[in-house]
Nucleic acid binder design. Sequence first.
DNA 1: GAATACATGTAAAATGTTACATGATTTT
DNA 2: AAAATCATGTAACATTTTACATGTATTC
Lengths: 184, 184
Amino acid sequence: MSLKYALLGFLTYQPQSGYDLKQLMDLSTSNFWHAKQSQIYTTLKKLEIEEQVISHIEPQENRPNRRVYEITETGETVLGEWLAQPLMVIEPRKETLLLKLFFSARLKPEAILTTLRLQKNLHQADLEKYQTTTKEVIRQFGASADMAADARLWETTRRYGELYEEMYIRWLDETIKDMEGWGE
Amino acid sequence: MSLKYALLGFLTYQPQSGYDLKQLMDLSTSNFWHAKQSQIYTTLKKLEIEEQVISHIEPQENRPNRRVYEITETGETVLGEWLAQPLMVIEPRKETLLLKLFFSARLKPEAILTTLRLQKNLHQADLEKYQTTTKEVIRQFGASADMAADARLWETTRRYGELYEEMYIRWLDETIKDMEGWGE
DNA sequence: GAATACATGTAAAATGTTACATGATTTT
DNA sequence: AAAATCATGTAACATTTTACATGTATTC
């Protein structure tokens, strides 16, 4: 539902192809929003039918042509309305790890611990990424004056990723420690 | 994808109807897994075709009959295999609030702050629920000896909810405080 | 008198994933 | 020589949401 707004949002900065948008998303919003290449292409097509974007072909040599999308005035309006509307609910989460854990009473604690330790490594890598790469990327964008306001907001979303991963690692540590005592 | 495992998991405790399963989910896993009534019904139907559950009708007076589902041996096997398989990835999140925030540079800080303060209230209510109602429900289940192992695991998932909400509120507080300085 | 709980479900639409297809260029 | 990147897209499938349909009993 919100993918269309994400695409419109990115297109307010500059016209881009579906491929570009996927790269940008992976770089910037993957912490809290993601989509597959194929979904991006189909959603752009729908947005064009709704006249919220228009596209033109940019020919290329030795590469497939690029279809570059631009946001229309209608698109800007739709995006603006969505942004102005305050979010009044908490979005329900889905966490497969927690679901497995919930039903894992039949498993040996050792089997569960293996998964938890593995997850800890993954989350630590993510945390470091937010603290180094992501932080630096945002800092650089924020350096140019016309991007400063945007970069401040982006930094708050990066900070969310950082706090989230810290929380997750803390929970994993607690749970691992707790579960190590369940052996006997 | 995992809804079927959730349903199988609940059915290992006792045979239940789709309606029961919805109530149970809302009470227990809503912190990390949820589904609409209609999806539960259709998934149960699919599970019956795959012979992972079987159902029979329980007649009732003055109420529609109940269709009660039981897990089969095939179902137990499928669930067991899923549980034994360690989760090797981090699941991508989707957070509409963060997406909006990311593109909100054009909004007045006051408009954003309204949403953030509203969200804080919602998250505080959730946090309290985990710390009181949910905690108490799990404690009571854990009191009976045959549920003790399960209740220990349930408590770890409740704790996740608690840490998550604490983290979210902390992030909101930080962001609100930060943004209050952007006014001038 | 209206709303909620009980209880079941179908149909349609929206959203998202996986697999397939193509083909040149660049990197390992 | 194999794999990855650039770049586009379609088709099929799976998942999820929303809306509709029905009807009694109880609570506010």
